[in-house]
């Protein structure tokens, strides 16, 4: 799938977690990530890239992402993105 069928989310806003919300986007609008994080300065670029990489790996080309990070590690971020994708594609 290169675009989402429906909006979906995964994760929580508990400490050390991240809430990933995915919204379908028009074709050719690309992957747009809006990130809120307490570690924006230290890891903001890294987290955005990781979200984009994970989406691209799953063949997504167009999507709007809202990510509310509460200090999640990479493994958590990837897992939440993947789960949100599965829910969006049902």
């Amino acid at each position: 799938m290169s675009k989402l069928l429906k909006a979906a989310q995964a994760g929580t806003v508990e400490s050390s977690d991240i809430l990933i919300s995915l919204m379908p986007a028009e074709a050719a609008t690309g992957i747009q990530v809006e990130l809120v994080s307490p570690t924006l300065q230290q890891y903001g670029k890294h987290i955005k890239n990781l979200i984009i990489e994970t989406l691209v790996f799953h063949g997504i080309e167009d999507v709007q992402v809202y990510a509310n990070d509460k200090g999640a590690l990479d493994c958590t971020i990837k897992a939440r993105v993947k789960t949100a994708l599965e829910r969006a594609g049902e």
């Binding site: 230290q42 890294h46 990479d74």
Partner: peptide, 10 residues
Amino acid sequence: KLCGKPEAIG
């Protein structure tokens, strides 16, 4: 290793 090296703040 767990978090990655933090970027310096401005």
